[in-house]
Design a binder for these strands. Structure first.
Lengths: 169, 169
DNA sequence: TCGAGTTTTCAGTATTTATTGAAAACCGTG
DNA sequence: CACGGTTTTCAATAAATACTGAAAACTCGA
């Protein structure tokens, strides 16, 4: 069916463009979109052909997606090639992205804040105290957010929705 | 006090590096860090000198931060120059960043998902149905997350912490 | 151990994004 | 309305990032 191909191509293209906003590269986002909507696992060559990209590019981004945990390698009996298959469950995807963002964005921030707070803790001037207080406020908040993110990720989807709805709905 | 300057410089430099990971540019993150830890509002020239950047760069990023709402222009009587001052409250900063991310990341994603779901809603093949279901699942989830983000942002900080702690602590 | 099929690496190149610096526009005051 | 101070714009350039393609490394069956 031609209409499906068209809708899927659009999804892949747009999701790729979005990836850029997100700070992940276009190809990676496109491959992810492609695999999320693939009826079966795909090979590197199929991905290359579909997206019209080089082997190196396909390879690098497939492995990066594997490292994130958003796709996985599947081996088929009688096949030497690797096949790739995306995690399709939205809650799973969410928790993976949350974990990865935490690792790359939250944890380094916490480290910096803790270090700067520590280094300024014994400065006696008013400016020094203000700086220390600001670092601590940021550190406390980011630490709290980080903990919340973990807690939420560890819930089952249904429970998370129920909880959220009850509280805020 | 030299020690303070050192700690603050480190904070500015590291926060700038982090900005990159975050998908916002280094200068913007550095200016934000600088102003968040500034005892008073600063002028464009002070920012330029402190960070050793050009006027154009300082100007562009100061205005971008104003557009986000993370800093504001303050006018001082008897002064023709504009001064800039950062929002220092962590909960305010969080809600601003959440709003902006929603606008740039969540809303465009929702639009794409809705469009692709719509376009594929009447395809009768199994592949077509699977695609439609996947689009809908993503759309529902992202829409839900978006709503939650709004609800949380609209709370007072103390109440948010209390709620989160009670539920998940 | 050889060789075909497959994956991995990476130097070179292309593309995108950020920054500079100077000119133009703006703005309030005399 | 002219002038000095200030902000804004933007073409040129620099820096960062992504992509290609081909060579090297790996793998496994014969």
């Amino acid at each position: 069916m031609e209409k499906l191909k068209q809708a899927r191509d659009e999804f892949v293209a747009q999701w790729g463009a979005l990836g850029t906003q997100w700070g992940i590269n276009r190809t990676m986002a496109q491959i992810h979109a492609l695999l999320m909507t693939a009826p079966q696992a795909m090979t590197t060559d199929e991905v290359m052909e579909d997206l019209e990209i080089s082997r190196g590019n396909a390879h690098t981004n497939l492995k990066e997606l594997v490292a994130w945990g958003l796709i996985k390698v599947v081996v088929k009996k009688g096949e030497r090639r690797e096949f790739f298959e995306a995690e399709k469950d939205v809650w799973q995807i969410f928790t993976i992205v949350a974990r990865e963002r935490k690792r790359r964005e939250i944890e380094p921030a916490l480290a910096i804040l803790a270090k700067c707070a520590e280094e300024s803790s014994d400065i006696q001037t008013p400016e020094g105290k203000a700086f220390y207080d600001q670092m601590r406020a940021l550190e406390d908040f980011v630490g709290f957010a980080s903990k919340m993110s973990d807690r939420i990720s560890s819930l089952k989807y249904g429970f998370a929705v129920q909880l959220a709805t009850k509280l805020l709905g």
